[in-house]
Design a protein around this nucleic acid. Structure first.
Length: 469
RNA sequence: GGCGGGUUGGCGGAGAGGUUACGCACCGGAUUGCAAAUCCGUGAAGACCGGUUCGAUUCCGGUACCCGCCUCCA
């Protein structure tokens, strides 16, 4: 049995992972709020968990893993978009406009994450389908003395939970000292957070013991994880920015609603994404979505490779240079594994790297070594652990028939020129191939060719025209 | 103010208290009509200051600089 070690944010140490039930390893990843396209940063935790899930599948068996990732479809940004559409003349009721928006966004999300080669989770609960469970949990928290109703709101009483702040390493008093929190007059403590809030007629709402309203941001994950994984499960994760307040609040809610259950054993947090060395933000103009990259012709597999080439607990810097380098590597690897039957099992070095706190960069280094050794079958089998070189994934790296015809014609023209010792023409074709991103290898058995990074079909067509090929 | 992350060779980026990371680039050689690709090979590091140690880039303390979170955010 492979020993997996993971860095647990809760204990701040790298620990040997021991499942609660090896027959049903359970993980929960905080999913997107579905108000817009997923940006590149949204993809990072999904990729990290995808590799983790593939590793768990390998170690415990595909059927022994339950992976849950939610869709947050109750949110003020969604409401604002729906209200904007109604103001713009949409006739449908607000709830229908919201459903349209969230359905549309979920479809985008699926398409984008699929394009990056991510497995779909076993469950993808929508918050709106678990309102009853959220209300029930809120009632339970009030009954146990951890929450109170005030002016249509229900608030969690952070002073009732001595562990509050433990995950993020802060005390309630410290937080208040540097606080920029909204201090509503009905809060007992400035750090108390909302479990339920009232909705007026312009907002979606559900009937509750506290009047018509909607849930606060954090309660959904507590309710959905409990409903689908139980009150005690193995791994919970997300971006490090969720550590506080979201995950801190989840812990408070879940532990107080289910005393003694334990909630999540291991907390995994990925560091943030940067772009060309700077924070990705709309104001800096370097903000882009996964779809933006895909539409610009960056293959999903290339995005995946770049994202996995930095360890998840380090800041990841997205650069054009990395994308270009990743493309070159993947093209080479696709060429190497084409038509090769993958080995029966992945290379031990790759498994060992991944089992050591998901060292994807180390695993990629091990893949390089397999490639250098010419072990195509091993490379093919091992790359799959990282969700790379999957069947059907490399279509982008393979030349189409039209391209193949042009290249073959040009190669024939070059061979004629060389035979005639017309080296000027032969060199022109050679340089044209290089400029178009076609890599030609002259071997003893004749020329072989492949598309290189930056392949340009138009440049190739122009070359063929110029050479009359 | 509080909490956290980072600083490794030209660039990217890992692990390990003592032995080659790995990739890209560079340089030399083989090969080629010239190249490309390929193969072989060389060189190149650990922000700064202390401490522990026979020995630290790796552990501990401090300094500097960069980044993030504390407000919606993966």
């Amino acid at each position: 049995m492979v020993e997996i070690r993971l860095t647990n944010t809760r204990t701040r140490t790298k620990e040997v992972f021991t499942p609660i039930d090896p027959g049903n390893v359970r993980l929960y990843l905080c999913g997107p709020t579905v108000y817009d396209r997923a940006h590149l940063g949204n993809a990072r935790p999904v990729l990290v968990f995808d590799v983790l899930v593939r590793l768990l599948h390998h170690v415990y068996g595909t059927d022994a893993v339950t992976y849950v990732r939610n869709f947050t479809d109750v949110d003020d940004k969604i409401n604002a978009e729906a209200q904007r559409r109604r103001a713009a003349g949409a006739e449908a009721p607000l709830e229908a406009l919201i459903a349209d928006r969230t359905d549309e966004t979920i479809a985008w999300y699926h398409a984008d994450m699929d394009a990056l080669g991510n497995l779909r989770p076993n469950h993808e609960p929508r918050a709106t389908a678990y309102i009853a469970q959220m209300i029930e949990m809120t009632r339970e928290l009030i009954a146990r003395g951890h929450a109170y109703a005030a002016e249509g709101h229900v608030l969690f009483d952070v002073r009732s939970f001595p562990e509050y702040g433990k995950l993020s390493g802060r005390s309630v008093d410290d937080m208040i000292a540097g606080a920029r929190v909204e201090v509503a007059p009905f809060k007992r403590d400035p750090m108390d957070f909302v479990l339920w809030k009232p909705s007026d007629d312009d907002l979606p709402g559900w009937e509750s013991p506290w009047g018509r309203g909607r849930p606060g941001w954090h309660i959904e994950c507590s309710a959905m994880s409990a409903a689908l994984l139980g009150p005690h499960f193995d791994i919970h994760g997300g971006g490090i920015d969720l550590q506080f307040p979201h995950h801190e609040n989840e812990i408070a809610q879940s532990c107080c609603a289910h005393p003694g259950a334990g909630f999540a054993n291991v907390w995994l947090h990925n560091e943030m994404l940067q772009v060309e060395g700077r924070k990705m933000s709309k104001s800096l103009g370097n903000f882009f979505t996964v779809r933006d990259l895909l539409d610009r012709g960056v293959p999903g597999e290339v995005i995946r490779f770049v994202m996995l080439s930095t360890h998840y607990r380090r800041p990841m810097d997205w650069t054009e240079a990395k994308a270009h380098e990743a493309e070159a590597v993947l093209r080479r690897w696709h060429g190497l594994v084409a038509g090769i039957e993958p080995a029966p099992s992945p290379a031990p070095a790759v498994i060992a790297a991944l089992a050591d706190d998901l060292n994807t960069a180390g695993a990629i280094a091990a893949l390089h070594e397999l490639a250098a050794r010419g072990d195509a079958a091993g490379l093919a089998a091992s790359a799959r652990m990282l969700g790379l070189l999957l069947p059907g994934m490399g279509d982008w790296a393979v030349a189409g028939d039209d391209t193949a015809r042009l290249v073959e014609a040009l190669l024939a023209a070059r061979a004629d020129a060389r035979k005639a010792r017309d080296f000027a023409r032969a060199d022109a074709i050679r340089d044209g191939f290089a400029a178009a991103g076609v890599e030609v290898k002259d071997t003893a058995a004749g020329p072989e060719w492949a598309l290189a990074a930056g392949f340009d079909a138009h440049a190739l067509a122009r070359l063929a025209e110029a050479q009359g090929a």
